[in-house]
Design a protein around this nucleic acid. Structure first.
Lengths: 351, 351
DNA sequence: ATGAAAGCGCTAACAG
DNA sequence: CTGTTAGCGCTTTCAT
């Protein structure tokens, strides 16, 4: 075994250095009341001098908080994304928004993969909760739509925030997917398109329905017919996008534009179109959803709706931290702005 | 304040359920010696029945281990990568390899960003260490090359593993960058190239030198002249790749192929070549380093050396966990195999 | 406004 | 082989 590590500096050392009691140091650390400014400064100086940082484990043991947030991502989808190297940056954006926001408040975000479909989700999550005792949980799609998970968390009285899941229990933060689909569709309509195909996402995700709804709304408000044949079912994957696009392009009156509910499906649409001898955007316009890095590098680069993943995660973290601090969270259901990034895949339809 | 949470199940409950002492349960959890199989089974059954999972915080408080590994990444580079949305998947691959390996052993990997250049690195790292008390630290480039960091860790007697930094203190895991550059260069030579340009990486990274060395070695063993003008200085960024490529293509006797030390620089080379009216690979071959997702989607897709980031991180985690378990780590300096992925950007030179 | 005492859930060291 | 005791570093509750 290794020799004992150099003893770390604890709250005791700070107390001794500042000539006060343990408790006073604790109060200063936690911005507690009832500490004279003079003493506060003395303690702060001691902390600074000794380079003291409180141990998360000890804080969790003593008190009721752990200063930990647990982010739950879909296991299969995440691992598949990593392995495939398709450049999906969901996780990166989550970390960018969530980690940095946590760091601002002395919190840590811990990242965990769980399989929504597994019969043992409940066990898996309970285990992680018992192990870490997080002060809050961030649910990414589709976990926020899974009642097994949300009910478990509610029962355990652990605050949680769902990203991209509307109107569920707990906090909610998302973008207006319906409006985004409408804006995307309006963009195509304004270019002159009249027959616009839509490739939907997996029904497991609540946002898939919202996107479809927004597409329909755009058609209606433009006075265009809603042809059910123009809506093809997908599940966000490249393969499903390929099949859906083939169906769409095989129609007697084929669409002049396609709005697909994910980048992978859009890329599939692009590929199918090109191998059918169609030029994008001359013969077919394509608009995508998500705006992951790769769509900037396809030829042509894709017009896409960008999801504000980092801001959403930051917002979720912020709400949970507020809740942990006992501050009231006024707006428990936030909607963040999205963006339509116009690139080279959308243009006027062929005459 | 919220009502008290439902009391979590602790080691006490398990002990009561199994009718044994606390300590016996602890022994079972930790695979300790001196427990009869019968009792062991009884305890295991109780654990299973109650769904008991030990609290990391409590284990850390009582014992000498935290079951935490801390991964230190370069702050600026990581955040810039996330913001730019260039599809760099270093972090994803780290998580894929590191997190999953940690999970296998009941460990957690915590991810932290620190700025190597900051005068306060030492403070930043000490703070994270005091806060988390990790059992080991994983250093990604260029942290492993920074003596301030490695010496701090050594002084604190915290086991650490450096990724992509050869022969330093602590554990080391990397790939043979020199050999990779040689293989990449040999690939070009075997296609018939005789004038091969090289764009180097930032000198702050030890592996930059190794890659240059491998390139030179390949030229030498093929009996080709080493023209210093064919080596252009870069720093891994797109901008530096643009400048370097311009220099290379401006040479009186310009190269017929370029080996660049990063994907961003290769993409820059591709862009400069194309805007100079050169066709890739007809007029100029390009071979890249790293093989991040985007290089599959450029036109043409780039031939590249793939770094085994996930395996390297997994290996680093494994070594640190072994060390924490008191098991001897035999091979403290591992080299993992890389791969040359041949795509469409390399071909025979123009005649 | 400050301090003292108790205890969080676990492991280490020592008894038996 | 198994149980008992004493903390780990902090926060809580209660005194002062």
């Amino acid at each position: 075994m290794s020799p004992p590590r150099p003893r770390a500096v604890t709250i005791k050392h700070v107390a001794a250095e500042a000539g006060v009691s343990l408790q006073t140091v604790s109060r200063v650390i936690n911005d507690g009341p009832n500490v004279r400014d003079e003493i506060k400064n003395r303690v702060r100086a001691a902390i600074d001098k000794l380079g003291y940082v409180p141990s998360l484990a000890a804080r969790r043991m003593g008190g009721t908080r752990s200063y930990l947030l647990l982010a739950l991502n879909d296991r299969d989808r995440t691992i598949d994304g990593w392995r495939s190297g398709d450049g999906t940056d969901w996780v990166d954006q989550m970390l960018l928004g969530g980690m940095l926001k946590c760091a601002e408040h002395g919190y840590r975000m811990i990242f965990e993969l769980v399989d929504t479909h597994d019969a043992r989700v409940e066990r898996a999550i309970s285990g992680a909760l018992a192990q870490l005792h997080p002060d809050g949980v961030i649910l990414t799609p589709p976990h926020g739509d899974n009642p097994v998970i949300t009910e478990l968390l509610a029962k355990l009285k652990i605050p949680f925030a769902s990203i991209g899941s509307e109107g569920g229990p707990g906090f909610t933060v998302g973008m207006d997917d319906a409006e985004a689909a409408k804006v995307a569709t309006d963009h195509l309509i304004s270019l002159g398109h009249r027959r616009i195909g839509f490739i939907s996402g997996s029904e497991e995700y609540a946002l898939s329905g919202a996107r479809l709804e927004g597409y329909r709304r755009a058609l209606r408000s433009a006075g265009l017919a809603e042809d059910p044949a123009l809506v093809a079912g997908g599940d966000f994957t490249f393969a499903s996008g390929t099949a859906a696009t083939r169906d769409l392009l095989a129609l007697a009156k084929r669409p002049t534009a396609i709005l697909a509910s994910s980048d992978q499906m859009s890329l599939a649409a692009l590929q199918v179109a090109q191998s059918s001898g169609l030029q994008v955007p001359r013969d077919l316009s394509i608009v995508s959803f998500d705006d992951t890095p790769i769509v900037k590098f396809s030829t042509p680069a894709l017009t896409a709706i960008r999801q504000p993943i980092a801001p959403m995660t930051a917002c979720a973290a912020q709400m949970l931290i507020c809740a942990a601090n006992g501050e009231p969270v006024t707006d428990t259901c936030r909607t963040l702005p999205f963006e339509l990034i116009v690139r080279a895949s959308s243009a006027a339809p062929p005459r």
